[in-house]
Amino acid sequence: MAKVLLRVENLKKYFPAKGGLFYTEKGILAKASVIHAVDDVSFNLFENENLGIVGESGCGKSTLAATILLLYKPTFGKIYFYDKEITQLSSEELRRLRPKLQMVFQDPYSSLNPRMRVKDIVAEPLSLIEKNKYNVTQKVREIIVKVGLREEHLERYPHELSAGQRQRVAIARSIITNPKLVILDEPTSALDVSTQAQILNLLKDLQKEYGMNYISISHNISVVSYMSDRIAVMYLGKIVEIGKTEDLIIRPKHPYTKILMGSIPLPDPKRRDYMMEVIGETPSPVNIPTGCRFHPRCPYAKEICKVSEPNLREIEDRLVACHLVEEIEKS
């Protein structure tokens, strides 16, 4: 079995819905008003494997990404990187580990400092670990060509570049330190369709060359399925189903995954039967429904769903959090 690169155990991140002196994360007053952005998430990422995370807007995907990289301090839970618990590291130890864990952000406009030249932006992470200035410049030149830009772009400011070029700069910055793990948080959602494809192919090519692992996060299932070997489906801060990409897309087991896959628009009018009606809106992450958090919208919901919260359990090489999987399969 392949080595586990990243192990996330029972990760939770709550935000106080009200700020200020009395409404702190652990305060008494805050109990009633906490945003459950990430609520008990566990998964493994193996070496040479790419994981995708899909879910609606506001389901906690981006918070999960930021918490894995410890931009936010987890409220609860542990994260292991190669069997080393990174949630317990001192800030100095963590800083030394940072170059191995990188991220590409959604918005290429705000992810680059408008007052820095491209060469300084790309060099920034590397200059922390490589003190020889000449080596840094050489590496920056090498990487800028690798991401499909030219050396002349190095002297430019971000506002002189197109969205696609900016995203290439952001990618160059994230891979210059030879990271083991790169989290792609909606890497293409701000780009137009033709640029999207270029960026995704670029990411794949870079992976072949540098051998990093991706966690792709998106609401766009086609992007995630193109980029990942396995997909985790998130709903209201929790993972409801994890499975092999093709398997999960063709035969979704969890009712939410079924609806999600059914909502992909396909240019085939005959497939209308496949679509399922979604009932209502996503509940607020402040007031999580009792029992299964999907039950108010689930077309199969039964009494048990309102009472007890289903945990992820293994069903045919897949993890699903639903009480009624077998029942639904039969019907």
């Binding site: 931009l71 918005d107 992810s111 400092n113």
Partner: peptide
């Protein structure tokens, strides 16, 4: 996001303030 990116790169807070916050 560029401040978050700087944090992820491992820059310490003082450098982030000097290079990213103050110039903007």
């Amino acid at each position: 996001f560029f401040v978050k990116a700087a944090k992820i790169s491992g820059l310490n807070s003082l450098i982030i303030i000097r290079k990213h916050i103050i110039p903007n």
